[in-house]
Design a protein around this nucleic acid. Sequence first.
DNA 1: TATTTGCATTGTAAACAATACAAATTTATA
DNA 2: TATAAATTTGTATTGTTTACAATGCAAATA
Lengths: 140, 140
Amino acid sequence: MTDRNALDTLQRYGIHPSVQRIAIMDYLLKHCTHPTVDEVYVALGKDIPTLSKTTVYNTLRLFAEHGAAQMLTIDEKKVCFDGVVTSHAHFMCKRCGRLMDVQLPGCFQECQPAEADFIVEETHLYYKGVCKSCAHKVNA
Amino acid sequence: MTDRNALDTLQRYGIHPSVQRIAIMDYLLKHCTHPTVDEVYVALGKDIPTLSKTTVYNTLRLFAEHGAAQMLTIDEKKVCFDGVVTSHAHFMCKRCGRLMDVQLPGCFQECQPAEADFIVEETHLYYKGVCKSCAHKVNA
DNA sequence: TATTTGCATTGTAAACAATACAAATTTATA
DNA sequence: TATAAATTTGTATTGTTTACAATGCAAATA
């Protein structure tokens, strides 16, 4: 039932389905690696040879606008996308560049900005550092 | 005492001073507007006509690497820099695009990732939404 | 005072991400 | 089926960032 899940997700967020949109959402749901536009484009290009990169850009942006995906700007080089939209934090390893999901700290619920001068729509929390497997490697 | 402060800051972070580096740090310390590379470049170009944009890129990156400045990737369009390196959060208004400092919520000290699989070097917390002055405007 | 050394700066070229836009295609609707 | 609307495609373009080679400059050494 591969794209059933994807189709459901699109409909749940009020996004008109199409072959491309289903494929992209399906990819997001199946690959929790926080892919970039290019990664999605290259991966899906095998199945959909006519796929245009512009479509991937537009579609992922559309997903983010509808709340069906999260746009992550943690790495300054490239924007990544996350199909998991429930609240969670991220960790980026400065050595290998990988982006990983992290559970939100328990205390986080109350962590809203002290000032009342803003209407908060999104909260982003992430860490940067060195992941375990990189820390184990000898070379600095 | 304009660049005295800047000079001190550079030395404190082990950065060799130079005319350009002092000027750029001085700008960062005086303008808490989270400027982009281009903003710094344009602003300082008046005083240092020979300044190269590459130098601004290199210098700000150098500052960030030495912990003398913070690199902010909140806006997916452009990287911003913050001369304030003490812990604080940010708020970005989706309408006007402004980036503002926000006090860290009191509970935040304990907010370290639950997993022990990472060596955390940086913690980033920010919010996106609508700022007060934009919320007051009539037009959506 | 010359020479050397090494880092900093400059400026151009190139890589790359992202967007704009118009044509082509597909889908929905009458 | 015809028509309109929405989506996709592909190219051209913009703009940011990096790579790199050449130059400048200042402190150290001869």
